[in-house]
Design a protein around this nucleic acid. Structure first.
Ligand SMILES: [Mn+2]
Ligand SMILES: [Mn+2]
Ligand SMILES: [Zn+2]
Ligand SMILES: [Zn+2]
Lengths: 139, 139
DNA sequence: AAAAACACTGCAACATCGTTGCAAGTGTTA
DNA sequence: TAACACTTGCAACGATGTTGCAGTGTTTTT
């Protein structure tokens, strides 16, 4: 609980109950969340628009990052110290086609790619889809 | 023009003007297109819904594939012989943050990744964002 | 302590995106 | 020709995302 405020303070954001709850939701569920997921979890307490704006703010401040998906955008916590200036990610995301959950594989890095001459890379997003360990166990 | 009908026939689809025009649009513009792009190009000739359905059909038949994006889904032609049964892609996509265009780098393959035990991969999507050769030239 | 400036939220209104059902039209098959 | 299957447009709807504004609460300044 106190850690939440630390995180917000650390990114120069005021502590509000909506921000605390959104942050808490990300920490409880460990997989990537869509706006709809958050609205489902917190929609009775906060307006849709407020949740959108909270996500936008968290993105800008480096608290969460986008997770590409084949059916809609999701978001996940930045584990390392991202800030408003530097938003660096090079880890892999895995989406299970069975349970539908998408997770950050934080310690699995995207391999280097030798781009053709003239391309200047700035950021990378690798999504691997398949079956997750849990779903493979239950069958 | 005749090649269009070949492609449609080859995937067991009737030749219709909408399908021809959508296919033609993909071949003319070389970058990945969103539904909105197609609606902008063909919207006066065909209903929005028809374009949605055409995209869905092309996806199922293996004529186009999804291209993940940080602001919305796009689609691009499958260059190799994808079919209704087998939809295999392992090439890299590049999105230019300057001009906004996303392209298939057909002959640049996604490197192998050693997933942790228990994960069963099925498909891969790698999007690299940065500046494209054209935009780097013009400045 | 009071005033001014700023930040956050909810609400309404709107725009875009995507899906579904149905009826009419067109092509294919028998 | 008659039956059938596929394709399209239209209408209606639901989901997703954005913007402006007014009310409230915080922070900063005087
Ligand atoms: Mn991640
Ligand atoms: Mn591609
Ligand atoms: Zn799973
Ligand atoms: Zn460019």
């Amino acid at each position: 609980m106190e850690q939440l405020r630390e995180t917000l303070k650390g990114h120069h954001l005021r502590t509000t109950t909506c921000r605390e709850d959104v942050l808490l939701t990300f920490m409880n569920k460990k997989n990537a969340l869509s706006h709809g997921d958050l609205e489902g979890a917190l929609g009775e307490n906060y307006d849709r628009v407020t949740i959108y704006r909270t996500l936008k703010t968290f993105l800008e401040k480096g608290i969460i990052h986008k997770v590409l998906d084949d059916e809609g955008l999701r978001y996940a916590l930045c584990s390392h110290q991202c800030s408003e200036e530097k938003h660096q990610h090079d880890h892999i995301h895995f989406k299970c086609n069975e349970c539908g959950k998408t997770n950050c594989l934080e310690n699995l890095h995207i391999p280097n790619v030798a781009l053709p001459a003239g391309y200047q890379p700035e950021s990378f997003n690798l999504l691997i889809q398949g079956k997750c360990p849990e779903c493979l166990g239950n069958n």
